[in-house]
Each structure stands twice: as structure tokens, then as C-alpha cells.
Design a protein around this nucleic acid. Sequence first.
DNA 1: TCTTGACCTTGACGTTGCGGTAACCCTTAT
DNA 2: ATAAGGGTTACCGCAACGTCAAGGTCAAGA
Lengths: 252, 252
Amino acid sequence: MTYSVQELAQLAGVSSRTLRYYDQIGLLPAERGHNGYREYSPAAVDRLQLIRYFQEFDFSLTQIQDLLTQSSTAQTAALAQQRAHLQERRDHLTALLNTLDRTLAARNGGPHMTDTEKFAAFKQQQLTDNDRQFGTEARHRYGQETVDASQQQFANLSAADYQAMQATEQDLFTQLKTVATTQDLTSKAAQAVYALHRQWLCFTWNNYSTEAHRGLAQLYRDDARFANYYNDRVGVANAATTLAAVIQHYAH
Amino acid sequence: MTYSVQELAQLAGVSSRTLRYYDQIGLLPAERGHNGYREYSPAAVDRLQLIRYFQEFDFSLTQIQDLLTQSSTAQTAALAQQRAHLQERRDHLTALLNTLDRTLAARNGGPHMTDTEKFAAFKQQQLTDNDRQFGTEARHRYGQETVDASQQQFANLSAADYQAMQATEQDLFTQLKTVATTQDLTSKAAQAVYALHRQWLCFTWNNYSTEAHRGLAQLYRDDARFANYYNDRVGVANAATTLAAVIQHYAH
DNA sequence: TCTTGACCTTGACGTTGCGGTAACCCTTAT
DNA sequence: ATAAGGGTTACCGCAACGTCAAGGTCAAGA
């Protein structure tokens, strides 16, 4: 017993156009009857189910095309890799729901939403990015408390402060680029780099000390994640080492 | 002070191409400098933040276009409607994750050592600690299944999620300390405590409900083991009762 | 037999939210 | 004066289909 396009479309919850498209790109080839109509065998039904299954996991059609030809172990690996992605998406949705609830409450005459809260979801994203990059290492070297306090501080920044912090970092990058090329540690640009970096730190550090600053400089030089961050953002290969050298030079 | 395309793009985490596109379709018009360059005012920055915010909630750009011209009440209605959609998506993702886990378990027969397994011992430790503290009592009141499902979920957390969960709990402790001293249930700190505790729960609960949350609040107040845990970690004697009061106040 | 209406076919163009590239302009530093 | 690093418009391309247009096929009723 075979299915027509419409029948299979109904069964699988897709449009007939979709089935014709899948046939066209060779993802789900159909056999043809004497009149040229498409006919789908039970095997095709199974294949379509698999396709829809993979599709739910955010694979593209070309990826699915590949997956369906590959071995079972390769398929397993791909699925496992997708798991983390799914979990991230769910956590993000959870955060969004919380934010949305607060937004709605505020709009319904509830407690007024501060600028900080309005930006919370975006900053949460930023924050976890930061944590992914630096969190583990910093925790190891400076202890849990410092990092938590720093995140706390970060989350408490007002929207204006947050933008000011971003602007400061931008200035830092610009000046750092100059120093990275000139390599002149006594230039005005180098002094600016030190001042800006210190200023940037003080947005989130409440107890600045030159020792901690120098400690951070070591991290910038020695840890690939820190180094990559600065090299990427500044756009030169020796940005991190230059920044570290500047800090070592001025922080006393 | 105005931003150039690149500057605003960096700030907002979008590409400059995106900004030019938004200008082109009139979603985020830019002013022009004497040289024809785009210049973005602070008002444009705010508008872009709003755009990104709505975008997170899966509105199309044309819908956002409309929303930005409409009244605040219309915007509220749209957001409220979107809430149900968001929750559906999250539930769907949860189901997908469970399915995927079962799929992977079925495919995985051998003693291959994954990163998850590397963390498994540590998490197993934590898990038994939790079980020693809370397990018996929770089992009595909520039944074996709930507890097992929760432990299952906990063991499935990725390393990154595990650290995020720890960070959330730390934030919770900090805020809770404030509330425990002020005893102001309507303060921002109290609201934060509720949100954080809910967020913390959702790392391991896949079906959050306010009733279950209130039930847990009772446990915190009435069971010495729960109470001691929070009082110890926060460092004040009335932490657990305060937390319970906050939850009772907000979970409806 | 003829017609009607439901189904099927192959094009071909439209959509969303940008990415990428080309070709050219502006400013600054060397 | 020339190179670099920004900016500009303009156009082509992508996935995964939706949506016509123009027509072939088939069973049923007048």
C-alpha cells in the first residue's frame, strides 16, 4: 500500500509542497505511478519520520542528508553534540520567561522596572559568556568569592554605567592598538591604556589593588582564553602581551 | 555623542550589515554626518535594544516595526500572548531533551569515557550529600518518583550548567542576607530572592509550578535540615524562615 | 458523453533576515 | 603619494519552503 502526496502530508503534518521539495532535492525520493503521480512506500514513511526527528534537533536539511547516509555511531555523535545546544536554548528560554514575567508585572502597574532590570536578559547572556571565558580560571586563582562578587557587581550596574563600561573598554582597545604597534611603554597612549584598564576594572572591582592588577596581567599573558579575547577584540596578535607589559610597568 | 555603525554593532552584538539592513527597511533609521556616514544617537541605541528584546521573543522584524509604533497596552497584550508560546517552546525542548537522552542511552552500550562521566563522580558526591540532607524527607512528602527524576536531571547537567547553578545559588545567598536583616518582603532584594530561587530550581525541575514552590517553602520553614542548610550558608539565623516567607509572598 | 471538481504535475517567482562581494569614497598616518 | 582602514551603495545568494500559473488525470453525476 502506498501513499499519495496529500495522504503522506496529512500523516506527517507537513505540506505537500514540502514533500515535493524533499523529492526535488533528493532528500526523500518518491516513486512514480503509471500517471506520473508520486507514490510513497512504507519505507519512505519511516525515512520521513527520521527526517522530522532530526529536524526537531535543529539540523539543516543538508546535514540530515549526510546523517542519513552515515553510520549509526556518527549519528550518535552528532546527536550528543546537539544536546548541549538544546540545553542552552532551554536555559535561555527560562531566563526570558522570568524577564517577561517581570516586564508584564511592571506594565500592569506592578513594581516599576529599573533600567538595570530591563537590560538584565541581555547582560545575563554577556555574563555567562564572560563566565565561560574567564570564570573557571579566575575561580581557581582568586577563589569563588571574588568571582561571585564581581558577577554580582556586574549585574547591579545601571544601564548607563554598563554603556560607560563598554565605552571605556572600546577606548582601551583603541589605545592598546597604538601601544601594541609602537611598543613604547612610556608613551601617552601607554599611560592611557593603564588608566583605562584600571577604570574599566573598577566598574566591577570594589577593592582595587595594584597587586591584584598585576596578577590579572599575568593571566592575560599566560592564559590563552584571556589572550585570545584581547587579541581578537583589538585585532592585533600581541595585544594581550602588550597589555600585560603596560600593567606590569605602571601598577605599583 | 554618537556611534558609528561598527561601534553600535559592537555594543549591541550585531553585525554592521544588520544595522545597514535595519536602516534600509526603516526599522532603525540612522542620521547622516557631513561625509554621508551613519550616525546613531542614544535614542537609536535604546530603540535597537528594544528591537533586540522583541526579537528574542520571536517577533518578526515587520511585527516589531508595528509594535514600536503602537501603544503601550497593545505592546503588553502582544507580550502576554507571546508568553504562552514561550512556555510551550520550553516544554517542548524539555521533552526533546528527555527523548534525546533516552536515544543516546540506547545507542551507547560501551564504557566510553565522556566528559560528562568525568564529572559524574564529583556530581555523584554532591548528589549523595543532597540526598543525605534532603532525600529522606522529600521522599516522604513528594514520593519516590519526583526525587529520582530530580536526581536524574541533576546528573545530566553539563559542567557549564553546574557552575551556572552554583553561581545562581551564591547570588541567592547574597540577596537573601539583605532581606533577612531588613525583613522587607516588597524590596527589590526580596524580588531578586524569589526570582533567583525559582531560577535555581529550574536547573533541576522541568515542570515548575507555584504550588510545588510553596510546598518547598513549607519544608524550608518546618524541617530543621533544610533550615540549617540555609542558615549556615547565608550566615544568619533566620535565613530559612525569611526565604520561606519570600516564596509564600510571591509564588502564586 | 460531457462536465464538474478534486487531485496531481512542472515551472517560476516571492519571502525573511541577513551574509558576502564588488566598486568606489573619506580620512589619517607614514 | 600611497597604503590602510574605515565608510557607502548595489547587487547576488542562501534555506526552506509558500504561492501562484497553466495545465494533465480521474471518478462521479447530469
